[in-house]
Amino acid sequence: MQARDIMVSPVVTVGPHASVQQVAKILLERRISAVPVVDPDSKVLGIVSEGDLMHRAASGTERTYSWWLGWLTGDAELATDYVRSHSAKVQDIMTRDVATALPETSLNDIAKLLEERQIKRVPIVNGEGQLVGIVSRSNLLQAIASAKPKLEVSLPDAAIRRRFFDELKNQPWAHTLNVNATV
């Protein structure tokens, strides 16, 4: 299966000048956990997730630093955190380094990308970089839940045993020399 087979389309998006409050409302109303930020040509500029909204001055959840941690962290990081917690515009808080994939990307590659980047969703873009869909972890779970079983139980026992051993022979970790199976 490919990303195009499970992606959600059309995608709820916002522009870079949307307000942080508008994004919070969209996330709540649509029951989603992130929105891609796109330009007028639907090219992905960034993404805003619930995690980007966790430490906000408006909710009293902005990060506080002890004097020694502030000293170790440095002024640049403290200033960045201040802007992220106080800014009213999406362009100031969005994650800019967004991992994207093409519609032809295999689900295996999507799963690897989610795991390696420790992210929860991947925007799907066409060859021109325009957003055409999004794949989240839950979309992968839906693919698993709706998958047909690989093995038909209506087969005779001998056929099931043969398929089992044929599959094991293709696995580099399986040492079938001294293995027996009863079906």
Rank of each mutant, 00 (worst) to 15 (best):
V90T: 09
V90M: 01
Q91K: 15
Q91N: 14
Q91C: 15
Q91M: 15
D92P: 09
D92I: 04
D92H: 15
I93W: 11
I93A: 11
I93H: 08
I93M: 11
I93D: 09
I93E: 12
I93V: 15
I93R: 06
M94S: 11
M94C: 08
T95E: 09
T95V: 08
T95C: 06
T95M: 05
T95R: 10
T95I: 06
R96H: 02
R96E: 05
R96I: 01
D97Q: 13
D97C: 02
D97Y: 04
D97A: 12
V98E: 02
V98D: 03
V98G: 07
A99Y: 13
A99K: 14
T100M: 04
T100N: 00
T100H: 01
T100S: 01
T100E: 05
T100P: 00
A101C: 14
A101I: 07
A101N: 09
A101G: 10
A101W: 04
A101R: 06
A101T: 05
A101Q: 07
A101M: 11
L102V: 00
L102I: 00
L102N: 07
L102A: 14
L102D: 11
L102R: 13
L102H: 12
P103S: 08
P103C: 06
P103I: 01
P103D: 04
P103Y: 03
P103G: 04
E104Q: 13
E104D: 14
E104H: 05
E104Y: 02
E104R: 06
E104F: 01
T105M: 06
T105Y: 06
T105I: 06
S106A: 03
S106L: 04
S106M: 03
L107G: 14
L107Y: 12
L107V: 13
L107H: 13
N108Q: 11
N108T: 09
N108M: 03
N108H: 07
N108I: 11
D109M: 08
D109L: 11
D109P: 00
D109F: 02
D109A: 15
I110S: 05
I110G: 08
I110D: 06
I110Y: 05
A111C: 10
A111N: 10
A111M: 12
A111L: 14
K112R: 15
K112P: 00
K112T: 07
K112N: 13
K112G: 01
L113N: 00
L113H: 01
L113C: 11
L113D: 02
E115C: 12
E115P: 00
E115Y: 13
E115W: 05
E115M: 08
E115F: 12
E116Y: 08
E116N: 10
E116S: 11
E116M: 02
R117T: 04
R117H: 14
Q118A: 13
Q118T: 11
Q118W: 01
Q118F: 06
I119L: 05
I119W: 07
I119H: 04
K120W: 00
K120Q: 07
K120N: 07
R121Q: 13
R121M: 04
R121H: 08
R121W: 11
V122E: 04
V122L: 01
V122I: 14
V122T: 03
V122Q: 05
P123Q: 02
I124D: 07
V125M: 07
V125D: 13
V125P: 08
V125K: 07
V125R: 11
V125A: 10
